[in-house]
Measured scan of single mutants.
Amino acid sequence: KPRTPFTTAQLLALERKFRQKQYLSIAERAEFSSSLSLTETQVKIWFQNRRAKAKR
């Protein structure tokens, strides 16, 4: 499955949200993903990867 190329605007929004909160609830994820027109899975995986990156 090819990787999702996120737009610059989407990445900025994701990073901004991540700075506020490293873990999203299911409801927050649903709302946030639709506002960015991404799937919930894409947002979930992005947050997982971003948390892993923050640990390094």
Rank of each mutant, 00 (worst) to 15 (best):
Lys1Asp: 15
Lys1Val: 08
Lys1Gly: 15
Lys1Glu: 01
Lys1Ile: 09
Pro2Trp: 02
Pro2Thr: 11
Pro2Ala: 12
Pro2Ile: 14
Pro2Arg: 11
Pro2Val: 12
Arg3Leu: 11
Arg3Thr: 14
Arg3Gln: 15
Arg3Ile: 14
Thr4Met: 07
Thr4Gly: 07
Thr4Tyr: 09
Thr4Asn: 06
Thr4Pro: 08
Thr4His: 13
Thr4Ile: 11
Thr4Ala: 05
Pro5Met: 11
Pro5Gln: 13
Pro5Ala: 08
Pro5Asn: 15
Pro5Ile: 12
Pro5Gly: 04
Pro5Leu: 12
Pro5Glu: 15
Phe6Lys: 11
Phe6Gln: 01
Phe6His: 04
Phe6Ser: 01
Phe6Pro: 03
Thr7Val: 02
Thr7Pro: 05
Thr7Gln: 03
Thr7Trp: 02
Thr7Ile: 08
Thr8Asn: 12
Thr8Pro: 12
Thr8Trp: 06
Thr8Asp: 13
Thr8Met: 12
Thr8Ala: 12
Thr8His: 11
Thr8Phe: 12
Thr8Val: 12
Thr8Ile: 11
Thr8Leu: 12
Ala9Asn: 10
Ala9Ile: 11
Ala9Leu: 10
Ala9Arg: 08
Ala9Gln: 11
Ala9Glu: 14
Ala9Gly: 11
Ala9Phe: 10
Ala9Met: 13
Gln10Arg: 03
Gln10Lys: 04
Gln10Glu: 01
Gln10Asp: 06
Gln10Cys: 02
Leu11Val: 04
Leu11Ala: 05
Leu11Pro: 01
Leu11Met: 13
Leu11Cys: 15
Leu11Ile: 08
Leu11Thr: 07
Leu11Trp: 00
Leu12Phe: 07
Leu12Lys: 09
Leu12Val: 11
Leu12Ala: 11
Leu12Thr: 15
Leu12Gln: 14
Ala13Phe: 13
Ala13Glu: 12
Ala13Asp: 03
Ala13Val: 08
Leu14Cys: 03
Leu14Ile: 04
Leu14Lys: 01
Glu15Gln: 01
Glu15Ala: 01
Glu15Trp: 04
Glu15Met: 04
Arg16His: 13
Arg16Cys: 14
Arg16Asp: 12
Arg16Pro: 01
Arg16Trp: 12
Arg16Gly: 14
Arg16Ser: 15
Lys17Gly: 03
Lys17Gln: 12
Lys17Cys: 09
Lys17Val: 08
Phe18Ile: 09
Phe18Tyr: 09
Phe18Arg: 03
Phe18His: 04
Phe18Leu: 06
Phe18Gly: 02
Arg19Asn: 13
Arg19Ser: 15
Arg19Gly: 14
Arg19Leu: 15
Arg19Val: 11
Arg19Asp: 14
Arg19Lys: 14
Gln20Arg: 04
Gln20Lys: 01
Gln20Asp: 12
Gln20Ser: 10
Lys21Pro: 01
Lys21Glu: 11
Lys21Ser: 13
Lys21Asp: 11
Lys21Thr: 12
Lys21Gln: 15
Lys21Phe: 04
Lys21Met: 07
Gln22Thr: 08
Gln22Pro: 15
Gln22Cys: 08
Gln22Asp: 13
Gln22Val: 04
Gln22Ser: 14
Gln22Gly: 07
Gln22Glu: 11
Gln22Lys: 09
Gln22Met: 05
Tyr23Lys: 08
Tyr23Val: 14
Tyr23Cys: 09
Tyr23Ile: 12
Tyr23Leu: 06
Tyr23Pro: 02
Tyr23Asp: 12
Leu24Thr: 01
Leu24Phe: 02
Ser25Tyr: 00
Ser25Met: 00
Ser25Ile: 03
Ser25Trp: 03
Ser25Pro: 10
Ser25Cys: 05
Ile26Gly: 12
Ile26Arg: 07
Ile26Gln: 13
Ile26Leu: 14
Ile26Ser: 09
Ile26Glu: 15
Ile26Val: 12
Ile26Cys: 08
Ala27Asn: 15
Ala27Ser: 14
Ala27His: 11
Ala27Tyr: 02
Ala27Leu: 10
Ala27Ile: 06
Glu28Ala: 03
Glu28Trp: 02
Glu28Gln: 03
Glu28Lys: 12
Glu28Ile: 01
Glu28His: 00
Arg29Thr: 15
Arg29Trp: 09
Arg29His: 12
Arg29Leu: 15
Arg29Asn: 15
Ala30Pro: 06
Ala30Asn: 09
Ala30Leu: 09
Ala30Asp: 06
Ala30Tyr: 08
Ala30Lys: 04
Ala30Glu: 14
Ala30Ser: 09
Glu31Trp: 07
Glu31Asn: 13
Glu31Pro: 04
Glu31Leu: 05
Glu31Lys: 04
Glu31Ser: 04
Glu31Asp: 05
Glu31Arg: 02
Glu31Met: 05
Phe32Thr: 05
Phe32Glu: 05
Phe32Pro: 01
Phe32Leu: 13
Phe32Ala: 00
Ser33Trp: 03
Ser33Tyr: 03
Ser33Lys: 01
Ser33Arg: 01
Ser33Phe: 00
Ser33Thr: 03
Ser34Asn: 09
Ser34Leu: 09
Ser34Phe: 11
Ser34Gly: 07
Ser34Ile: 14
Ser34Arg: 09
Ser35Met: 11
Ser35Leu: 08
Ser35Gly: 07
Ser35Arg: 13
Ser35Ala: 13
Ser35Asn: 02
Ser35Gln: 15
Ser35Thr: 08
Ser35Val: 09
Ser35Cys: 08
Ser35Lys: 13
Ser35Glu: 14
Leu36Arg: 05
Leu36Gly: 00
Leu36Ala: 07
Leu36Trp: 06
Leu36Thr: 00
Ser37Leu: 12
Ser37Val: 02
Ser37Thr: 08
Ser37Cys: 12
Ser37Trp: 04
Ser37Glu: 11
Leu38His: 01
Leu38Thr: 04
Leu38Ala: 01
Leu38Arg: 01
Leu38Ile: 05
Thr39Glu: 08
Thr39Lys: 02
Thr39Phe: 03
Thr39Arg: 00
Thr39Val: 01
Thr39Cys: 11
Thr39Gly: 07
Thr39Ala: 05
Thr39Ile: 06
Glu40Trp: 08
Glu40Ala: 08
Glu40Met: 00
Glu40Gly: 04
Glu40Ser: 04
Glu40Tyr: 02
Thr41Leu: 09
Thr41Tyr: 07
Thr41Gly: 09
Thr41Glu: 13
Thr41Gln: 09
Thr41Ile: 15
Thr41Phe: 13
Gln42Pro: 00
Gln42Ile: 05
Gln42Phe: 00
Gln42Lys: 03
Gln42Glu: 14
Val43Arg: 03
Val43Ala: 00
Val43Tyr: 03
Val43Met: 02
Val43Trp: 05
Lys44Val: 07
Lys44Pro: 04
Lys44Glu: 15
Lys44Trp: 02
Lys44Met: 13
Lys44Cys: 09
Ile45Lys: 08
Ile45Trp: 13
Ile45Thr: 14
Ile45Pro: 05
Trp46Gln: 01
Trp46Cys: 03
Trp46Phe: 10
Trp46Thr: 02
Phe47Ile: 06
Phe47Asn: 07
Phe47Asp: 01
Phe47Met: 04
Phe47Ala: 02
Phe47Ser: 02
Phe47Val: 03
Gln48Asn: 04
Gln48Ala: 11
Gln48Glu: 15
Gln48Pro: 02
Gln48Met: 10
Asn49Lys: 02
Asn49Ala: 09
Asn49Arg: 04
Asn49Leu: 08
Arg50Phe: 00
Arg50Gln: 14
Arg50Ile: 01
Arg50Tyr: 05
Arg50Val: 05
Arg50Met: 09
Arg50Gly: 00
Arg50Glu: 15
Arg51Asn: 06
Arg51Ser: 10
Arg51Ala: 06
Arg51Phe: 05
Arg51Met: 10
Ala52Phe: 03
Ala52Gln: 10
Lys53Ala: 13
Lys53Ile: 13
Lys53His: 14
Ala54Lys: 06
Ala54Ser: 09
Ala54Asn: 09
Ala54His: 11
Ala54Glu: 14
Ala54Trp: 11
Ala54Val: 10
Ala54Gln: 13
Lys55Ile: 12
Lys55Cys: 08
Lys55Phe: 07
Lys55Arg: 07
Lys55Tyr: 05
Lys55Thr: 14
Lys55Val: 09
Lys55Asp: 13
Lys55His: 06
Arg56His: 09
Arg56Gly: 13
Arg56Glu: 14
Arg56Asp: 15
Arg56Pro: 13
